[in-house]
Amino acid sequence: VTLFQQPTNHANGLTRDLKGRLLACEHSARRVTRQDSDGEITVIANRYRGSRLNRPNDVIVKSDSSIYFTDPGAPAPGLDLDYSGVYMVSPDLDEITMLVGDFITPNGIAFSPDESVLYVNDSRRQQIRAFDFQPNGTLALASDRVLCDLSGDRPGVPDGMKVDVEGNIYCGGSGGVWVIDAGGNRLGTIVHGHDASTNVAFGGDDWKTLFFTTWNTIGSVQVNIQGIPVPTNVR
């Protein structure tokens, strides 16, 4: 393990865009940024309709270069917004759209393999919700459904989320990292022995290594199904 960057403004969720550039949710700076290979920082989003964002948490990029992120934390003293939202940023970065604002703590976010469904977990409610996409990239709110309840008698709440090429979902939950199929059925739990899972990511040469973080550790486990790859080289 080597140090990539410090300080990071308490960066949380990370991903790469279609050109391999690093996107980060900067918790303390209350913004989502993109970093080029030369270190130049571009602000993707830091305000919505003039109000500063809360505490951006996790971010993903669609195949059309649209950017989706979660923004928990509200309502709370010192924050401008009175709700916690899920947002979409247009590929040209000119427009930010609030997709849904009735989460308590929106956290991990992921697409289904065909990008027809958006998954968002709510740490406070201990559930994953699923939404079908409309053609313009917004959500069909009438399709909103609770896909899975991840509560239990062991430590851990929904946190972080990734999907493999067969559509299975990997998400922190009670007792470890839950593996859930696209129908919301729990297939099993990756038990790592720590109090909580805080994020997950696929990697390795074949994208069959699932990395996970806890409050103070980093671990990995080999899985049988390839995770959905993200670009790794800046172009």
Score class of each variant (00 low, 15 high):
36 D>I: 01
86 V>T: 10
127 Q>V: 08
106 P>Y: 06
33 T>G: 10
53 L>A: 05
35 Q>G: 00
110 A>R: 10
106 P>N: 12
77 P>Q: 10
120 V>C: 05
75 P>L: 02
46 N>L: 04
29 A>V: 03
86 V>H: 05
81 L>R: 12
123 S>C: 08
82 D>H: 14
95 E>I: 00
68 Y>G: 00
72 P>A: 05
76 A>Q: 12
69 F>R: 03
38 D>Q: 10
29 A>I: 07
86 V>R: 02
42 T>L: 08
13 G>C: 05
71 D>K: 05
54 N>R: 03
35 Q>L: 09
82 D>C: 13
33 T>Y: 04
94 D>P: 00
49 R>W: 02
45 A>L: 15
35 Q>K: 14
108 G>T: 06
101 G>N: 15
107 N>I: 01
104 I>N: 13
64 D>T: 03
56 P>S: 12
79 L>V: 08
101 G>Q: 15
47 R>I: 04
117 V>S: 01
74 A>I: 11
73 G>D: 13
37 S>W: 06
91 P>F: 01
90 S>I: 08
28 S>G: 10
15 T>I: 05
9 N>R: 00
110 A>E: 12
46 N>Y: 04
29 A>P: 01
43 V>E: 11
72 P>W: 00
51 S>K: 15
104 I>E: 15
18 L>F: 10
69 F>S: 02
61 V>Q: 01
69 F>C: 01
108 G>P: 06
81 L>P: 08
31 R>V: 00
35 Q>H: 00
40 E>D: 09
8 T>V: 13
112 S>V: 11
110 A>P: 07
103 F>W: 13
127 Q>D: 06
29 A>W: 09
96 I>L: 01
128 I>P: 13
45 A>F: 06
65 S>H: 08
41 I>F: 05
32 V>T: 05
49 R>F: 07
70 T>D: 14
24 A>L: 11
81 L>D: 03
92 D>L: 07
66 S>Q: 10
37 S>K: 06
79 L>C: 13
124 R>T: 08
18 L>A: 12
39 G>M: 02
24 A>S: 11
31 R>G: 15
96 I>S: 03
111 F>W: 08
55 R>N: 11
102 D>F: 06
45 A>N: 04
103 F>T: 14
26 E>N: 04
79 L>A: 04
41 I>A: 11
118 L>V: 14
84 S>P: 00
32 V>F: 13
58 D>W: 07
43 V>W: 08
17 D>H: 15
120 V>Y: 02
85 G>K: 11
98 M>E: 14
111 F>G: 02
87 Y>T: 00
109 I>M: 01
102 D>V: 03
77 P>W: 03
46 N>S: 12
91 P>A: 00
122 D>C: 12
56 P>I: 09
93 L>G: 02
27 H>S: 13
87 Y>F: 15
79 L>I: 09
34 R>P: 09
91 P>M: 06
110 A>G: 10
58 D>A: 07
11 A>F: 03
97 T>Q: 07
98 M>N: 10
82 D>I: 14
92 D>G: 07
49 R>Y: 01
91 P>W: 02
84 S>W: 05
37 S>I: 09
13 G>Q: 00
78 G>K: 05
80 D>R: 11
94 D>H: 04
87 Y>P: 01
15 T>Y: 01
117 V>P: 05
92 D>M: 11
82 D>M: 12
111 F>Y: 06
119 Y>K: 07
16 R>H: 06
19 K>T: 09
34 R>Q: 12
76 A>S: 04
83 Y>F: 13
47 R>A: 14
25 C>Q: 10
57 N>G: 08
95 E>Y: 05
